[in-house]
Amino acid sequence: MTSDAEPDAEPTPTKRPGFVYFLGYGIMAPVARLVFRPTITGRENIPKTGPVILASNHLAFVDSLVIPLTAPRRVQFLAKNTYFTGTGLKGWVSRTFFTSIGAVGVERGAGQAAQDALDAGRRILESDSAFAIYPEGTRSLDGRLYKGRTGVAWLALTTGAVVVPVGLIGTQEIQPTGSKGIRVRKITVNFGTPIDVSVHGSAESGKARRLATDQIMAAIHELSKQELAGVYNEAPPSGTLHKLADRVFPRERR
């Protein structure tokens, strides 16, 4: 998620995807491939069994559909909890849809919320599943690749999962920023060579987490060919005054 925090609490087992996931995948995957005809490379790099982290760049909301629908095994990822808590028909549709693509609901934010999200990712991996994560924390609005948060390294070092870097190209053209519609555009999904980050040290070492994260981001960069931002990606300002100030005094945290 978006934080560098690493939780200490022991997680409880997570529930694996069930009937709704496999039904949704069975319907949506062939349809998506027929309509968008994505170029997919490196599917063989994803281990068929055992815990694996798919660490990807993040360009658009549809990235969370593209990865599960192009990977050769079921993939789970974290999504904001509001997608699962709605009421009525709309709430049922949202809940069913996100369940069908392997999403797991969590509260988004910093501090304890970020730790809870990492715990959820840890539970997924400890059930020998594939887990997709965006080390940048939030999607890139300008197309550049931002610095990775070290939560991805903590997950890999704690669970022993291998990391498969993912480079998405062109997904921002399917759903440009601010657009609610979907456009048919050519995209590329590159799955890279698995990375064993254990060579950097233990999960308790801040240096090991930073080195492992930088290695993962370098691999993503090689696959996506994006311009490097060299800074962390921050969430857009929320209030009107903050938005105005951000326009007048643009800033990036290094």
Rank of each mutant, 00 (worst) to 15 (best):
T2A: 06
G26S: 12
R144N: 11
L65S: 09
E227K: 02
F131M: 05
S56H: 13
F131E: 01
L59C: 07
P250V: 10
I53C: 01
L59W: 00
L65R: 04
F22M: 06
S127Q: 15
V162Y: 00
I195Q: 03
T213A: 00
V163A: 05
A219Q: 10
R108Y: 07
V35C: 01
L211N: 14
P135L: 02
A130L: 06
D246N: 15
K186F: 13
K186P: 06
R37L: 09
R43L: 00
V20L: 05
F97W: 01
A208F: 03
S100C: 04
S179G: 03
V93Y: 10
R185H: 14
D142E: 08
P194I: 13
V66E: 03
R183M: 04
F84P: 13
I187W: 02
K225S: 13
S205R: 04
G206S: 07
A103V: 12
R108F: 03
I53A: 03
V184P: 10
D8L: 03
G109V: 09
R33C: 05
A79F: 00
L223V: 07
V152N: 04
S140C: 09
T188H: 10
A153Q: 01
T99V: 01
V189C: 08
R74D: 13
S94C: 08
P51H: 01
F249N: 15
G230F: 04
G24W: 02
F84Y: 13
R183A: 11
R43Y: 00
D196M: 11
K48H: 10
A117R: 15
R123F: 02
P51C: 07
V52K: 06
E6F: 13
T85L: 01
T85I: 02
G167V: 01
Q115P: 02
T70Y: 01
F97N: 07
V248D: 10
D128Y: 03
L23E: 00
R144Y: 00
V189R: 09
V189E: 05
A32N: 00
G192V: 11
P30N: 11
A55H: 06
R139I: 04
L34C: 03
V66H: 01
N190Q: 10
T96F: 07
V66F: 01
V152P: 10
F19G: 11
S129A: 15
P13A: 06
I220K: 07
V20W: 03
D196Q: 05
P38S: 09
S224P: 05
G201P: 14
H242Q: 15
H58M: 02
L34R: 11
Y25F: 10
V35G: 05
S205L: 07
L141A: 14
V104I: 11
G206V: 08
G181T: 15
Q175R: 05
Y146G: 01
Q175H: 06
Y232V: 12
I67F: 00
S202I: 08
T240F: 00
H58E: 00
E107Y: 09
R185E: 12
L168C: 08
R33H: 09
T87S: 15
L228S: 14
A235N: 15
T85Y: 06
I195C: 06
P165F: 06
F84A: 12
V164R: 03
